[in-house]
């Protein structure tokens, strides 16, 4: 079990609105999953650097060259709401 207060805090961090029922459900399911995943604490990992990219890949840096491949219309064409070529959202002042 992960307590409901924690679940609600996590949901808020993740910006997911959840119902009381969902909070109950997650508290159980995530609790159960985490209890299982917890077993990695048994592994002695002293001095081991965590791994992110698993294979050897050469470094690649872009040259500083500007290009324009897209129009602002294309970039805003999927917007749920817009004004001209700007994305429209609730007031955030």
């Amino acid at each position: 079990m992960i307590d409901k207060k924690t679940i609600k805090h996590i949901a808020k961090l993740a910006r997911l609105e959840i119902t009381e029922d969902e909070a109950d459900e997650y508290s159980q399911q995530l609790g159960k999953a985490m209890a299982h995943f917890e077993q990695i604490s048994k592994v002695d990992t002293t001095g081991i650097e965590p791994l992110v990219t698993p294979t050897e890949i050469d470094d690649f840096w872009r040259e500083d060259v500007a290009t324009q491949e897209f129009t602002p219309e294309e970039m805003t064409s999927n917007a749920p709401a817009k004004a001209g070529n700007l994305f429209k959202v609730p007031p955030v002042v």
Binding site: F37, I40, S41, V43, T45, I48, E49, P50, L51, V52, P54
Partner: peptide, 14 residues
């Protein structure tokens, strides 16, 4: 305890 630890075990697996 979780993300970082998992990354360490991941290296051991590799």
């Amino acid at each position: 305890a979780y993300y970082n630890k998992a990354g360490q075990v991941r290296r051991m697996i590799v």
